[in-house]
């Protein structure tokens, strides 16, 4: 089966949106796929929201920008409001249900409610809701294996904070258990 994931990741600054994008394409690259990631760099960044667009494909990637993601990650309400309608019919929408207080209006996509921020806070890893979300996505979609995450994480976490490798992996495991 051909692989062509188009993933929109959106939330507010500080939620690790850009790191999540980089993490996913690094994993994709290690898995042998073509990958691109482009941040939204518009004036909205100064208002505190952040988004990036990821493509993971087994074919050469044309446009790194797309209108209809196959998978949307909405980490806050403004992002969910902005991108909910964009998800391709039959695609996935993952919502941080700790911060988003409404349900999806669409019934033609699989919407997964993940209390990512809540779970991260309860476990004392406040800043890693993004990785809890990644764990849940791994479990629901099978996009990558956990073993690949173990391989990739040390390459992306700053060498100055090696203990963060295990903390990030723990967050992924917590997400996988949800």
């Amino acid at each position: 089966m051909s692989v062509n994931h188009q993933i929109t990741i959106a939330g507010f600054g500080g939620q690790g949106i850009q790191f999540t994008g980089k993490f996913l394409i690094y994993a994709g690259m290690q898995a042998g796929y073509e990958v691109t990631c482009i941040p939204s760099y518009g004036p909205e960044m100064r208002g505190g929201t952040s988004a990036c667009f990821v493509v993971i494909s087994d074919d050469k990637i044309g446009s790194p920008i797309f209108s209809n993601p196959s998978l949307l990650i909405a980490m806050n309400t403004p992002s969910f409001d902005k991108y909910e309608m964009s998800t391709e019919p039959g695609g996935y929408t993952f919502v941080d249900s700790t911060l988003v207080d409404r349900k999806a209006v669409r019934d033609d996509v699989t919407t997964v409610y993940v209390p990512a921020t809540g779970v991260a806070s309860e476990n004392g890893i406040h800043s890693l809701a993004n990785m809890v979300m990644v764990g849940k996505i791994l479990k629901e979609t099978g996009i990558f294996s956990y073993e690949l995450m173990e391989k990739v994480m040390p390459k992306l976490v700053s060498a100055k904070r090696p203990q963060m490798v295990e903390t990030n992996l723990k967050a992924i495991r917590l997400g996988m258990e949800l």
Binding site: E34, T36, C37, I38, Y41, P64
Partner: peptide, 10 residues
């Protein structure tokens, strides 16, 4: 252009 400058690729 801004797309090439900002995007990340291997």
């Amino acid at each position: 252009d801004g797309m090439l400058g900002q995007m990340m690729e291997p």
